[in-house]
Design a binder for these strands. Structure first.
Lengths: 132, 132
DNA sequence: AAGTAGTTTAGAATGATTTTAAAGTAAATA
DNA sequence: TATTTACTTTAAAATCATTCTAAACTACTT
């Protein structure tokens, strides 16, 4: 599917900037990146985009489910193009994330959900340390 | 154990400010709080502390294992006086955390650890949504 | 073709956290 | 005990990621 369609299907107006970003991000590969990482990639691809626009686009993309946002990695916001339910390995030293397929983790037991709430997804983080 | 001893045992110099913080935090109760929350509590207790000192102390306390830091809750740093290995319920709306005892979660299967790394702890986050 | 509603932009503003450098204090040494 | 040394606290400035603002722009509708 072309970026134009993906953006239209998501209910967003296809601007030049959103197309540039969709071309970079939505290529089927799973990536983890910050707003600044993306701005650098945009530059490398011969385009220019203000950092405000990068943030705006990422926010819109997130709101309509084209990407996800990961909260536990670094202080800076990290985005994730893998929108399937999945887990992560996390190298706490560097903040690097590696995807874990949902079916690789099996939970035998989880506690009762507190009153007034419902379970809205379980996320497993396996923290890693370099072994040398 | 008195705060003075706790601080000494942790290898820190017991300053007036660290004692004030230890008196508030290390009372055996498990809390989640930000630097600003703590500064407010310090004020309520009739003391004053610059926000820089609050951050310095929390950093030192974290480094020597007197407290933990939780990364996935809010944009602001959240600290945790529960230093045991445990998991969390997370209300994504409010950022509120509730502890889950380690033994309440049983993992039947976890994936192979990537080459060059060792498993440095598994953390489970059960995201919550208000049910109304 | 004209209108309007949403978007981009530079730059300012914000908010959390860190840094700076001077003054203060606990611990070590004489 | 007095002196020295290293660490700590502080206010204020600096930093950094992110959001806001308001003007210019552009996609879509009429």
């Amino acid at each position: 599917m072309k970026s134009l369609e993906k953006i239209r299907n998501a209910g967003l107006r296809p601007t030049k900037q959103r197309l540039v970003i969709a071309d970079i991000l939505l290529d089927g590969q799973n990536r983890h990146f910050t707003a600044e990482d993306l701005q650098d990639e945009i530059s490398s691809s011969g385009n220019y985009m203000s950092i405000g626009t990068v943030y705006n686009c990422l926010k819109k993309f997130r709101e309509c489910g084209l990407i996800k946002q990961v909260k536990y990695s670094k202080d800076t916001a990290v985005f994730d193009t893998n929108t399937n339910h999945h887990h992560h390995f996390l190298d706490e030293e560097t903040g690097q994330l590696i995807d874990i397929d949902n079916n690789k983790v099996i939970l035998k037991n989880i506690p009762e959900i507190p009153n007034g709430f419902i379970n809205n997804g379980v996320e497993v983080i396996i923290k890693l340390k370099r072994n040398n």
